[in-house]
Amino acid sequence: MPLPTDQTINALGQSGYALSFQLLGNHQDAEDMTQDSLNTLVAKWDTFDESKASVKTWFLTIVRNRTIDYMRKKKPQFNPDILDQSSDRKAETAQQHIEASERQATVRDAIVALPQDQRELILLRDYHGFKYAEIAEILNVPIGTIMSRLSRVRKQLRLQLLDLGGNSR
């Protein structure tokens, strides 16, 4: 099977970088993890089985495992300011823009405050848009546990945001 096109590799790189960055909170480390993972993807391309997982799922599994491995060994400090609010969010008025920014900031802070395993779970689903089967593949956990774990994280986030008044639209 031929290697992915440059366009695909660029898209994979961006997704991998985003995931690693969300876990590490450090640009340079996330770039290193992504580049290492791309090297691994190319080196192990012959072993990739497209009947088992998509390229994106496979690649993000590589990125995630490499990042977790790095975190265990180096124990880098997580930067709580990693997630920036979206700049292209549509807002009709200045007031709406302010409210949207505040809400985003509240959500961002709540996400950042989550333990690593919960943060990666909710971001894989809601930010990266993976299906439960793909998340189970990436995290190497039974698919049956994904819904219950997600439910707990969302419940916790919802209550946290309700307390802060940050989820009222």
Binding site: N10, G13, Q14, D84, S86, G129, N167
Partner: peptide
């Protein structure tokens, strides 16, 4: 809200050149 979260910009966009 989570889907709309963004990150500080990453300068490296041409990952294919690094692979």
């Amino acid at each position: 809200d989570i889907a709309d979260l963004d990150f500080q910009p990453n300068k490296t966009t041409q990952w294919s050149e690094l692979a």
